[in-house]
Design a protein around this nucleic acid. Structure first.
Lengths: 200, 200
DNA sequence: TTCCTTGACATACATTCTGTATGTTTGTTA
DNA sequence: TAACAAACATACAGAATGTATGTCAAGGAA
């Protein structure tokens, strides 16, 4: 079994990330020890600290990979929608589909914000799935809507979606949340002129 | 300095909780060591493990106390409002006031969900500030609105409020978030008949 | 008051984990 | 094939957690 160096590197990197991902999901980041990770990955701690600066860097790599997968999954699902509100609803559905992967909610919505900080996690989020939501809201509310307002609304709706994803992962009825989101979005679409008229 | 036993107990419990709260806010739960806590509290680790089962139990006690303070602060602020939507907006403002206390967002919205789990934190939340929001939404949407829908909307709005509190604590403009919330609530108030008509 | 029990700690210890420093093997290049 | 570098493995130092044991003051009972 003579493998080239890049092949070896990527293989152990993936083995470490996969093993750590499972353990982080099952026991959480804090309660997962590096000896457990390397045992599950079939390597030693030396390999871990050769490829990753520390335990947090390993989590960061996993979170980034997972966030990219979510964004990719949403992009694949994205089809033409008739109205901006329908586009937002389809985006939400795609997000719930993507977050349905077991453990993803825990990794992306619980562990990452606490360990890596809210700022770092928000940056990862905004670089991927978050931007989809903001463009959707701009479509819905018109390009002349106040930018700060849109940013704030994007953040809060994103948090609401995350909350819904967590609830669904915990066994809640997905259709109830999707309808609740539909009502929120319809309310936004119907009311935005009121805010704009106050500002302009 | 002859103190009775109950006095001694409460004094050291409070000293430990206060010292740990400051350190958890400044450095986070994971990066705060029990020797640091007891040094700041002026006791030994023996006292800590006599009063609290482990480090997590200490965090739990602090989080519960802080959540009760938030609920109390909101209850004190609650004055008569003319409309259900105004009541909700005042409640949101009171929540932001209460969360304005330095470090509270980190403790209640970042550390607690990750360390104690989303379920435990949600239970603490629902027992305190969360119920205020749900009753306000029932007022807004009418008592005949679908209960599951109200519960889901409560959860998501609660998450949106938390997100706003975090953003404000991070330096964002509070008035922008309050206006965004106002638009969301007005949208809900104007649209709820649509959902109800589908269900009944 | 005296004795005895219990709660409230303090101290010492065993285990375990993290990160680093050093050693060894394997691939790569000149 | 000789030299070098990357990819690991092993050994170690420091520190942290939780526990077990020891000590001392508080508080009733005789």
């Amino acid at each position: 079994m003579a493998r080239s160096n890049p092949e070896r590197s990527q293989a152990t990197r993936l083995a470490l990330m996969d093993a750590a991902k499972d353990l982080f999901i099952k026991k959480g980041f804090a309660d997962t020890a590096t000896p457990d990770i390397v045992r599950a990955a079939g390597v030693t701690r030396g390999a871990l600290y050769h490829h990753f600066e520390d335990k947090k860097a390993l989590l960061t790599a996993i979170v980034e990979r997972e966030a990219e997968a979510v964004a990719q999954q949403i992009a694949d699902m994205s089809v033409r929608a008739k109205s901006p509100s329908e586009a937002l609803l389809r985006g939400a559905a795609a997000y719930f589909d993507a977050m349905n992967t077991p453990g993803r909610t825990r990794l992306l919505l619980l562990e990452a914000p606490a360990i890596l900080g809210a700022a770092a996690t928000g940056a990862i989020d905004r670089g991927n799935a978050g931007s989809t939501l903001e463009t959707g809201l701009i479509e819905l509310l018109g390009p002349d809507a106040n930018r700060d307002w849109i940013a704030a609304t994007t953040n809060m709706l994103s948090a609401a979606f995350d909350c819904a994803a967590l609830a669904i992962a915990g066994g809640a009825d997905r259709s109830v949340y999707e309808r609740s989101i539909a009502v929120l979005i319809d309310g936004l679409a119907g009311q935005n002129w009121q805010y704009r008229s106050k500002r302009e």
